[in-house]
């Protein structure tokens, strides 16, 4: 009963968040200057043409009427038609979402592996030069933003040592059997490791660029909280039982020290997804972020709205997952 109630409360707050995001984006993109009709017509189009096209997309109505029409469509699953691509918005957005999700998850995995390894190394060799080296690495990782890492990586592994692909999601020459848009998962499922490897070679640099700053944050926070945990009485007690330093760190300190890091990863992961917008552009990666930039340039109002709603939904789901994981790992919260 309690659980059911908690879930219902959670769903209610999620819908409020989504409606809030919808309202904000709908009105903001209509208030800022620039309109999609001007982008579509050639210079010197007649007043008549402009008026006809404006009426066609319903942009002649008041902003509140437009909102009403859009919202009633949304509740029926119709997010409108993209102005620039002349296709229904939702299939377009959902077609691109898997590419971005795969990129973001790959980046998250890289960040957790690198950040976790750095933190553990730093704690295992605390108060030595190794820890200082970890601190320096964290500092460098944090102080350079993801898009700059992207350029650095392109120079290193795209130009000087061309071992990774610098553009696109998959080599166009390959024969593509995919029925879903989750190429990485599907290629594994089909045991097509050649495709899988090609996908990874495309994803590696954008994912790493997104991952480095997050890895640095994870490493810094996890190392700090591990170091604090290492001084706690139950850790000291487990040393007297005859356990090695590695065991003490991994099985006594880590499960407790990881909790604050987990919350941070949740928050930072949403930033990382925000970061995909620019990174996808830099690597011509055909994801949602790249589509978002085109939508903004073309003032494609329905498409922008659709993308923002999907991003907002993604963020609320991530928060939910983080909270659930946290409760699962922390017995003190489980009964609350």
């Amino acid at each position: 009963m309690k659980l059911l109630r908690a879930i219902l409360v959670r769903l209610a707050t999620m819908s409020v968040t989504l409606i809030g995001a919808a309202v904000v984006v709908f009105f903001v993109i209509r208030v800022v200057p620039g309109n999609p009709i001007a982008m579509m017509l050639p210079p010197g189009a007649s007043e008549e043409d402009i008026a006809r096209l404006t009426a066609h997309y319903g942009l002649d109505k008041t902003i509140f009427q437009q909102f009403g029409i859009w919202l009633s469509g949304v509740f029926q699953g119709d997010f409108g038609t993209s102005i620039s691509l002349r296709q229904p918005v939702m299939p377009l957005v959902l077609g691109r979402l898997p590419a971005t999700l795969e990129l973001a998850i790959f980046a998250l995995v890289i960040a957790v592996v690198i950040g976790g390894a750095l933190a553990l190394t730093g704690v295992r060799h605390r108060e030595t030069r190794t820890e200082t080296a970890v601190d320096v690495a964290n500092g460098v990782g944090l102080s350079i933003p993801d898009f700059l890492w992207a350029l650095i990586l392109i120079v290193l592994f795209g130009v000087l040592m061309p071992i990774f692909h610098i553009s696109g999601r998959i080599s166009p020459s390959l024969d593509l059997p995919f029925v879903t848009q989750f190429y990485v998962f599907e290629s594994l499922f089909r045991l097509r490791f050649d495709l899988w490897w090609d996908l990874l070679k495309h994803m590696f640099m954008p994912a790493l660029a997104l991952a480095i700053p997050l890895a640095a944050i994870i490493s810094q926070l996890l190392k700090q909280s591990l170091k604090e945990t290492m001084h706690l009485d139950y850790v000291t007690l487990s040393r007297t039982k005859g356990y090695s330093e590695n065991h003490v760190i991994l099985s006594e300190a880590l499960p407790n020290a990881v909790l604050p890091t987990l919350t941070l990863i949740g928050v930072q992961f949403t930033f990382l997804i925000g970061g995909t917008v620019i990174i996808e552009r830099l690597f011509s990666y055909e994801g949602l972020g790249n589509m978002a930039i085109d939508a903004v340039i073309n003032r494609d109002l329905p498409l922008i709205q659709g993308i923002v709603i999907v991003f907002a939904l993604l963020f609320t789901i991530i928060n939910l997952v983080v909270d659930m994981t946290y409760a699962l790992l922390n017995p003190r919260l489980r009964h609350a």
């Binding site: 009485d233 139950y234 000291t236 007690l237 040393r239 039982k241 005859g242 790992l329």
Partner: peptide, 27 residues
Amino acid sequence: PADRRRLIGATAALIPQDPLTALNPSR
């Protein structure tokens, strides 16, 4: 160090000062 740790673990034990902090909260 490894032998010392094992000897201490096998023959000696500690009753700590503060029972509120000496047990691992997640176990």
